[in-house]
């Protein structure tokens, strides 16, 4: 194979020098033709990938796919294991008996159904605000020219690039002075409604790119036909940007679902559960504490039957990402394809 490769590059080099000459490439000799044929089978040509290359590509892809899935598979198999299986080295992947006790315990410790409902509110309301506002702002930037536009664009990019740690504290103080830190969704909705929600800038840029690709003449034609600026936006721009709306909705939902830092700040995070809203990610972060409280296992000894173990932790982790996994498997195509459709990449 090595030889073949060498030959291949050497051949390419001569081919290059030949190509620079005005004459055409001389017809290959019979031995070379044979070599060429096998080379094509193994190394492939421009049109078709060879056997070696295919093998390399698929091996790499499958290996990397396994590496990607490995933590997930581990989580899944662990979460069904009984305590005995955890200690048993022979049951590394497949549990000897499938138990759902871990999930039952984790549901109790996470206060799952309650937290799930709260998390849904906390993810959905800001998402709706975010989609509406970022769509408008993205459209405004894409469609209109106005003085100081460059300044605002610069500010937009800057607020995306710089980490939010410097601003989160004054914002927290502002909200707490306005008595808005009360364990409700208010701070999230307010920031999202003013285009300052989580990852809002990215959403604005997605809409900006999308609306810029829409032919101006379409919108202008509507305006000439008597549609006002807002009517043109509602009747033409919004229906045309449906793909972008789907991406932004899906991603905003996922981002808000997974957000930990802001949730910690705005919900008044502590080690004990408060009465206000919560997210499953926050609950997962304090899983050990709440488990010990729920099962009163802290005081009891190592041999206690209710001692927290890895399997229960994995079940808890699994439960907290389960809604997202379901969403992903249902809307997988929209997630993956929309990213390049909506032009997240920018031109």
């Amino acid at each position: 194979m090595k030889m073949l490769k060498k030959k291949h590059t050497a051949n390419a080099r001569t081919a290059k020098t030949i190509a620079q000459l005005p004459e055409k490439k001389p017809a290959p000799k019979s031995r070379e033709a044979r070599m060429d044929h096998w080379k094509k089978v193994f190394l492939g040509s421009m049109e078709k990938r060879g056997l070696v290359m295919s093998l390399v590509v698929y091996t790499l892809l499958i290996t990397i796919a396994f590496i990607y899935l490995y933590p997930m598979l581990h989580m899944l198999s662990r979460s069904f294991m009984s305590k005995e299986d955890l200690l048993d080295a022979s049951a590394k992947w497949i549990p000897s008996s499938v138990t759902t006790k871990n999930y039952k315990d984790a549901i109790l410790a996470l206060d799952y159904w309650n937290s799930l409902g709260k998390n849904l509110i906390l993810a959905l309301l800001p998402t709706i605000c975010q989609v509406i506002i970022t769509s408008m702002v993205g459209y405004g930037f894409a469609r209109y020219n106005f003085p100081l536009k460059k300044l605002w664009m610069g500010l937009l990019i800057l607020s995306f690039l710089l980490p939010s740690q410097a601003t989160s504290m004054p914002n927290y103080l502002l909200f707490s002075r306005l008595k808005l830190i009360d364990g409700t969704v208010k701070p999230f909705v307010i920031t999202a409604a003013l285009g300052q929600g989580f990852m809002s800038v990215l959403c604005i840029l997605i809409f900006y790119n999308f609306h810029r690709q829409v032919p101006q003449s379409l919108v202008e034609a509507a305006e000439i036909d008597g549609a006002g600026h807002f009517k043109a936006y509602f009747r033409i721009a919004i229906p045309l940007s449906l793909a972008a709306i789907i991406v932004v909705t899906l991603f905003s939902f996922v981002w808000y679902w997974n957000e930990v830092y802001l949730a910690q700040i705005y919900l008044g995070y502590g080690t004990t559960r408060n009465t206000g809203l919560t997210t499953l990610m926050l609950e997962l972060q304090r899983f050990e504490d709440s488990y010990n409280v729920t099962f009163d296992a802290r005081a009891s000894s190592v041999t206690s039957p209710n001692k927290l173990n890895d399997a229960i932790k994995m079940a808890g982790t699994m439960l907290s990402i389960l809604p997202l996994l379901l969403l992903y498997f249902v809307l997988q195509k929209q997630f993956v394809e929309s990213v390049d459709k909506a032009g997240i990449t920018g031109e």
Partner: peptide, 12 residues
């Protein structure tokens, strides 16, 4: 243009 981006300007 400013009307469309107004919410964001206030926010930023």
């Amino acid at each position: 243009g400013y009307l469309f981006i107004l919410p964001w300007i206030v926010g930023v």
